Computed example of a mutant assay.
Amino acid sequence: MHSSLRPFFSQAGLRHGARAALPAFPGFIMFSAAFGTAAAQKGLSLAEAMGLSAFVYAGASQMVGLEVWQQVWTPTTILTIMTVTAVVNARMILLGATVQPWLRHEPMARNLLNLFLITEAGWLVGTRYYNEGGRDVGVLLGAALILWIVWQIATIVGFFAGALVPEPKTFGLDFVMPIFFSVMLVPLWKGARPALPWLVAGAVSFVTHALLPGYGYIVAGALAGVIAGMLIE
């Protein structure tokens, strides 16, 4: 019998996490297929597109990376794409920090795999499970693995059938992921005061996006939320 307080790992947890991630599939499929389409139109080879999906594995960063993609690379363009990817993905630092209490007793190899595969959707699945008293780390990894696999498959489909993939906004499919995030956040609600950092982060992101070009609004919102949370606590 596992302690309800001590984290553990099981294959049953892997299966549970994979099932819990099912609602995120439509958004993942549409986003990664759209990336595959854009990559093909940009002139990337299938290997290059799959390399980005497999190792960068972050929709926003992959799309931004395509904007600065060059057929002939120089040290400057390499530095540019590295910087842009790092800035857009900086939010992952916060996700990794929040799961530290859950993963701190895990083997290093499994920790590295969990943190490499973490996404907002997988994090929401795992955090909801953890806050409900669950401690099976397999849930976090199961959700992460199945989402990564779905991302790779949909990238391939988008690459080869991109011209046939309709514009997601035409059917409102661009709202799938925001709706998924919103629904998964509901169980995390613990009152107005703890939710203030969410409000601050959203407001700062919105204002920054309206006033400044680029993708700094993501970092600005994240930092504002962290600062707000520290001040409230």
Rank of each mutant, 00 (worst) to 15 (best):
P168Y: 07
V186S: 07
W123I: 04
A143M: 09
I118C: 05
Q71H: 14
F160H: 15
I78W: 13
A121G: 12
S32V: 06
P7K: 07
A222T: 11
W102Y: 05
G27R: 08
Y129K: 01
W69F: 15
P101G: 07
F175D: 00
I78L: 15
P101Q: 11
A40H: 14
T119W: 05
A40Y: 09
T155L: 03
Q152E: 14
F206T: 12
G221D: 01
G65W: 05
A20S: 13
V56Q: 00
G142S: 10
F28G: 09
G134D: 04
L117Q: 10
F28P: 00
L199G: 15
W189M: 12
M230G: 07
V88M: 08
T127D: 11
A97G: 07
L117Y: 08
T74E: 04
L22G: 08
V219N: 02
P213F: 10
A109C: 06
S205R: 04
I232C: 07
N114Y: 00
V139N: 03
L103R: 03
A201N: 06
L115F: 09
G172A: 06
V64L: 10
L164F: 10
A33N: 12
V137C: 14
H209F: 12
S61M: 03
M177K: 01
L196K: 02
V139K: 02
F35M: 04
T85D: 14
L5M: 10
M82F: 15
A34H: 03
I81G: 09
I81M: 15
P197I: 09
P194T: 12
L188D: 07
S182C: 14
S53K: 00
L211P: 00
V226P: 00
I218Y: 01
S4A: 13
V150T: 15
P187K: 09
D136C: 08
H105T: 14
G202H: 05
L223Y: 01
A18Q: 11
I29G: 10
V219M: 14
R6W: 00
L94I: 13
A58M: 02
N111L: 07
R6Q: 12
L5G: 00
A86F: 15
S32Q: 12
P168V: 05
M177V: 11
P166W: 08
T85W: 08
N131G: 10
G142C: 09
I218D: 02
W151S: 13
A39K: 03
V72K: 11
I93D: 01
V72E: 13
I29A: 15
Y130R: 06
V186D: 02
G51E: 05
V137D: 00
F181C: 05
M92K: 07
A86D: 07
N114E: 00
E67D: 10
I29D: 11
P101T: 09
R91H: 06
F116R: 01
L140W: 08
W102K: 05
A18I: 09
G36T: 03
G133R: 04
A220S: 11
V99D: 07
A12V: 06
L5Q: 12
G216N: 05
L188I: 08
L14Y: 11
P187V: 13
G162M: 05
G191S: 10
A163V: 07
L173A: 09
V207D: 01
M82R: 04
A203C: 13
A39T: 03
T155H: 05
G191T: 12
